[in-house]
Structure formats: structure tokens, C-alpha cells
């Protein structure tokens, strides 16, 4: 299946990626080629195959319910573009 400009715009929106208008045709091209590669998968019948999400057939390990972390806010917020009063700031969110 090949993608068109609308698909690119939609996917970029979902992924929150700004794409330069001028680059859209190239993305259309690239993604269509990649999908053409990917569609070789259809050559195999997989009707009765159980999907494999993980390389190892293991079960989730559980952690004891203990508080092991200490407050490192200052350290973490030193990395943030904008903070105030201990809060991360973003442009006003309207609900």
C-alpha cells in the first residue's frame, strides 16, 4: 500500500511532528517505498501463527511494594526548559 499526502499529514499530526510542507512529497516517497518493502510480509500465510511480542517466553517479575526513591526534584528540574514553584510549565492548556 502506498501513502499519499493526506496520510503523511495525518500521521505527522498523530506523532506531533512538524513537517515542512516542501518535504511532504519526499516523505510520501520514502514511506511508500518502506511500506512496499514491509508488504513482502504478505507472502506468508500466518493464519495459525501465535503472535510473538517478546523474544523470551518469560513472565513479568514483581517488585515489592516499597518506597525506594527519594526526592530529586531540583536535580531533575535542572534539565527542564521552564519550571516555576516546582512545577513544569507548558503553554496554557485549555480544557
Amino acid at each position: 500500500m502506498s501513502v499519499d499526502q493526506t496520510d503523511i499529514t495525518k500521521v505527522a499530526l498523530l506523532a506531533r511532528l512538524e513537517i515542512d510542507e516542501a518535504d511532504v512529497p519526499q516523505y510520501v516517497d520514502n514511506l511508500s517505498n518502506i511500506l512496499a518493502l514491509v508488504e513482502q510480509m504478505n507472502e506468508v500465510d500466518t493464519d495459525r501463527v501465535v503472535p510473538m511480542a517478546h523474544p523470551l517466553d518469560a513472565a513479568q517479575r514483581l517488585r515489592p511494594d516499597e518506597v525506594t526513591e527519594v526526592d530529586q526534584r531540583d536535580r531533575f528540574q535542572a534539565l527542564a526548559p521552564q519550571v516555576e514553584a516546582g512545577l513544569y510549565l507548558v503553554p496554557k492548556v485549555i480544557e
Partner: peptide
């Protein structure tokens, strides 16, 4: 973008699930 596309509604089974099966 490829990853977003293959997981998006309507394509999941054809791409992601199929890939997981071939992975097996």
C-alpha cells in the same frame, strides 16, 4: 511516522500483528 502509521486504527492487524506472527 512509519511506526505511528502501522499502529494506527485500521492498520494494526495488517502490519503490527502480522509482523509479530512472522517474528514467531
Amino acid at each position: 511516522m512509519i511506526g505511528t502509521y502501522v499502529l494506527s486504527a485500521g492498520y494494526y492487524d495488517a502490519y503490527y500483528l502480522k509482523a509479530q506472527k512472522i517474528r514467531r
